Simulated assay, not measured.
Amino acid sequence: MAARKRRPSLRPLWVAQLAAMALMVGLAAGFMGATDAVSALVGSAVALLPNAYFAWRVFRVRGGRQARRAVHGLYRAAAGKFGLTVALFALVFVSVPLSNHALFFGAYVVTLFAYWLASWLVARQTPN
């Protein structure tokens, strides 16, 4: 019987994104003030929440016999992530008075880069 492949842990991805969020909020609070730290927090959250939704949807299906269902779930997760990202951006710009838009987008981009970098490192360390 073939050995079961373990799924890679999502912990490094979450740790990287939460560290990026903490770094951006801490830098904003330290150098610019509490109101700008809120802009950084909201920007990081707009990146973090859709990624959490995507991971939750993708890893619901397990097993090799459910490949078609897994691919379908992947497409639904990607569409949901995109829709959630658009909705969060719209919600933020309509309802949250941001003091620093550049910091909002900077925190968003840094949090996304942390996710991409961590996922690349996890993929490199996972044995075949």
Rank of each mutant, 00 (worst) to 15 (best):
R4Y: 12
R4N: 08
K5I: 12
K5F: 14
R6A: 15
R6N: 10
R7N: 12
P8G: 06
P8V: 13
P8K: 07
S9T: 07
L10T: 10
R11E: 13
R11I: 14
P12Y: 05
L13N: 03
W14I: 14
W14P: 00
W14C: 05
A16G: 03
Q17T: 00
Q17W: 03
Q17S: 01
L18I: 11
L18C: 08
A19F: 10
A19V: 13
A19M: 07
A19I: 09
A20E: 01
M21W: 10
M21P: 02
M21S: 06
A22S: 09
L23H: 00
M24N: 09
M24Q: 08
G26Q: 01
G26H: 01
A28E: 12
A28D: 03
A28W: 06
A28S: 13
A29D: 01
A29W: 12
M32F: 15
M32Q: 10
A34G: 09
A34C: 10
D36H: 07
A37D: 03
A37C: 07
V38N: 00
S39I: 00
L41M: 05
L41N: 03
V42C: 01
V42D: 06
V42E: 02
G43P: 04
G43L: 06
S44Y: 00
S44R: 01
A45G: 05
V46C: 02
V46G: 01
V46F: 08
V46Y: 07
A47M: 09
L48Y: 15
L48D: 00
L49K: 07
L49T: 04
L49R: 00
N51W: 03
A52P: 01
A52W: 05
A55L: 15
W56N: 06
R57C: 11
V58G: 06
F59L: 14
V61Y: 04
V61G: 06
R62K: 11
R62L: 14
R62C: 07
G63S: 04
G64V: 09
R65Q: 14
Q66L: 15
Q66R: 15
R68C: 03
R68M: 14
R68L: 13
R69V: 04
A70P: 01
A70N: 04
V71N: 11
V71R: 12
V71I: 15
H72M: 15
H72E: 11
H72D: 13
G73K: 01
G73L: 05
G73N: 09
L74V: 08
R76H: 06
A77L: 07
A78M: 08
A78W: 04
A79K: 09
A79M: 12
G80P: 01
F82C: 11
F82H: 02
F82N: 11
G83P: 07
G83T: 06
T85L: 05
T85K: 02
A87Y: 01
A90H: 02
L91V: 06
L91D: 04
V92M: 02
F93M: 13
F93R: 07
S95N: 14
S95Q: 11
S95V: 10
V96D: 03
P97C: 00
P97G: 04
P97T: 09
L98C: 06
S99F: 08
S99T: 10
S99E: 14
H101W: 08
L103I: 15
L103R: 08
